[in-house]
Computed example of a mutant assay.
Amino acid sequence: MADGFDPTPPPTAWRDPRRPFWPLALLVPGLPFLSWLVWDATGGWWAWWLAPLLVFGAIPVVDLLVGDDHENPPEAAVPRLANDRYYRWLTYLYLPAQYAGLVLGCAVWVRDEPGAVAGAGVALTLGIVNGIAINTAHELGHKRERTERWLAKIALAPTGYGHFQVEHNRGHHVRVATPQDPASARLGESFWAFWPRTVVGSLRSAWRLETARFRLRGRTPWTWRNEVLHAWAMTVLLVALLVAALGPAVLPLLAAQAVVGFSLLEAVNYLEHYGLARQRTGTGRYEKVDPRHSWNSDRTVTNVFLFQLQRHSDHHAHPLRRYQTLRSFDSAPQLPAGYATMILAALVPPLWQRVMDHRVLAHYGGDLSRANVHPPARRRLSGPPAGGTPQPSSPGR
């Protein structure tokens, strides 16, 4: 496989082999309905824990069994592939299913009073669905079409993370893999240290970026044209409608699932750029973003369920490319597993460090000075890494 271009087969004959499987992504917003049906039939509290078990238990196993898919579409086929509205409608359809599941979960919480254990499962289930919806918003929010950008804000409303669209597009993509980026995790930084830094830092960054846009024009940021404010207003409206329909008892569920949802996003942010750094050029500027600055994964199953988010290296190098056209690059550092598996590892810092720290050092030929290092961890990392002696090559597939 050549970097950025797969010369075979001829573009006129090429067909997307995963085309029939992309609708599987819509099973995710269907998880609350699965749990509800099982719960209604059995009355078992465990029914509301099916979503976390399937997402973080079954999918990693199936991912391992199915393996990787490194195939890239030929570049000559990309315009046709990108303009095929079939792929676009799959992202659109996630939203009504997402909202239907949210209403169902809220109704169960208020009217059926599922109890503490089942109730925690309801919050986790809705949080997983709305957290993965942030990925759908990520795909939509990068596009030039106004309708898609608005749909992205709708997908973000249940988690109260509407500012993500501003910070991600105009902040993260500019500062990625630098110490200035709150969404780029540093080598030796645990997820639990990263979480408050990125949650608070991203919110501040989004507000500063948007207010700066207005002040450059001599205008106040306190206007309905402020993208952060009207994204938050959509969350307030959604909460108000649910409270009006179901009562204030729904508020704890909405808060809990929102925290789960945006924490899931930040866990993904944590692993996508962990320890990777862009180097300064002779002018003092950072080098251009390329596939070396994002962790990649070609695990087939998770890529289908996440609209190919795991081909993150190509996304950062070419942010406007649609998910069905994203490519795998030989120069991109590779995660040892798919996102579902790596998120679980990230929650256990000693395990994460053992799995990932030596891979970061290997990516830089053992040169710690080239990585994005968490200052308190520098002394520990200066010794032999937990996973073994660094090798002077990129991690293998």
Rank of each mutant, 00 (worst) to 15 (best):
E148C: 03
R149I: 13
R149C: 10
K153G: 10
K153P: 00
K153A: 08
I154D: 01
I154Q: 13
A155G: 11
A155F: 06
L156M: 13
L156Q: 03
P158E: 05
T159C: 05
T159P: 00
G160T: 06
H163W: 10
H163M: 09
F164S: 08
V166D: 00
V166F: 00
E167H: 05
E167V: 10
H168A: 00
H168S: 01
H168C: 00
N169S: 15
R170L: 10
G171W: 05
H172T: 05
H172L: 06
H173Q: 01
V174I: 15
R175C: 03
R175H: 08
R175L: 15
V176K: 02
V176W: 04
V176R: 04
T178Q: 05
T178H: 07
P179C: 03
D181K: 06
D181S: 05
P182V: 04
P182G: 04
A183S: 15
S184F: 02
S184Y: 07
R186M: 12
R186C: 08
R186A: 13
R186Y: 03
G188L: 06
G188A: 09
G188Q: 08
G188F: 02
E189I: 13
E189G: 05
A193C: 08
F194P: 04
P196D: 10
R197P: 09
R197Q: 15
R197V: 15
T198K: 00
V200G: 09
V200F: 09
V200A: 13
G201L: 01
G201D: 03
S202P: 05
L203I: 13
L203W: 07
R204H: 14
R204G: 12
R204V: 14
W207L: 13
E210L: 10
T211C: 13
T211Q: 15
A212D: 14
R213V: 06
F214V: 00
R215A: 03
R215T: 00
L216R: 15
G218P: 10
G218D: 10
R219N: 08
R219T: 08
T220N: 11
T220A: 12
W222Y: 12
W222I: 11
T223V: 05
W224V: 14
N226S: 11
E227V: 02
V228L: 07
V228N: 11
V228C: 14
A231N: 04
W232L: 13
A233V: 01
T235Y: 05
V236Q: 02
V236C: 08
V236E: 08
L238I: 00
